[in-house]
Design a protein around this nucleic acid. Structure first.
Lengths: 136, 136
DNA sequence: TTATATGCAAATTATTTGCAACCTT
DNA sequence: AAGGTTGCAAATAATTTGCATATAA
């Protein structure tokens, strides 16, 4: 039904943020996206970038992750439950699934008397490309 | 060899922080620990609490986690690799192990060409006690 | 028109750092 | 005495909020 847009109004700035997210398979922070748009001449206020990302995340259209340094980073992902395999050097991300892990997590939690179980799982490593062509 | 202490000097404030950590099986933020010590009359500067927690974490004596709101929270854990099952209501934490998940994570990452693989995994739920006696 | 969206500036919050005074060895 | 340690105050940094202005419908 709905276009893949945010609220009721696909404004220039919202389209710009959405477009930036659509281009890469890397988790990006609000600050990075803001800078990226600025570099290409698309001026969007930092506040608006934050608001747009928050809205998209709440709508479930993008995934949020906490970078190890505490920044929130965003990425456009496929729908449904999945986890991430992230290159700690270039940030390239692969979506992965692990049905066995899902059931194990739920089972383990229940065994300890926990209900309404959720979990987070991220895998970090160095991707082949980064291992081969180390950064400058 | 080493006592379970931090740097070279077991000062009053470092002991106080270590003691506070030893008392509970809950992840606590620096701010919370600072307040807790203050309440019991053990005055320790917030800066020192931060520094002590950071040092303990780097020494591997405590675990750090990012609370969903971005705060860093700390807890004294057993040594060795493990994960956490955390009650989202009271914060009570159970340490869990999942050998199958470990190998799955590594295998999956390698299959995608990733090396030097690490992972993070936390399970959240509502513990029995909190489900039974809901908070005020 | 009219509610929604934007963006600047100011406020918040968590954490870090400069630096002088202090305490442990 | 000598160097690690402390803590206040100020500095950072990411993110949020107030509010007047601009804009999509």
């Amino acid at each position: 039904m709905s276009a893949n847009f945010i609220g009721a109004r696909p404004t220039r700035q919202r389209k710009a943020v959405a477009a930036a997210l659509a281009e890469v398979d890397v988790f990006r922070s609000a600050q990075e996206i803001h800078q990226l748009l600025r570099d290409r001449g698309e001026d969007v206020g930092l506040t608006t970038v934050y608001r747009t990302l928050t809205a998209l995340a709440e709508a479930g259209e993008i995934d949020v992750l906490r970078a190890p340094d505490g920044e929130s980073v965003y990425r456009q992902c496929s729908t449904g439950h999945h986890h991430h395999l992230v290159c700690r050097t270039c940030g390239r991300t692969v979506e992965i699934e692990g049905p066995a892990v899902e059931s194990w997590a739920t089972k383990t939690a229940r065994a300890h008397g926990f209900a309404e179980v959720e979990h987070t799982l991220e895998i970090f490593g160095t991707c082949e490309s980064c291992a081969t062509h180390p950064p400058a």
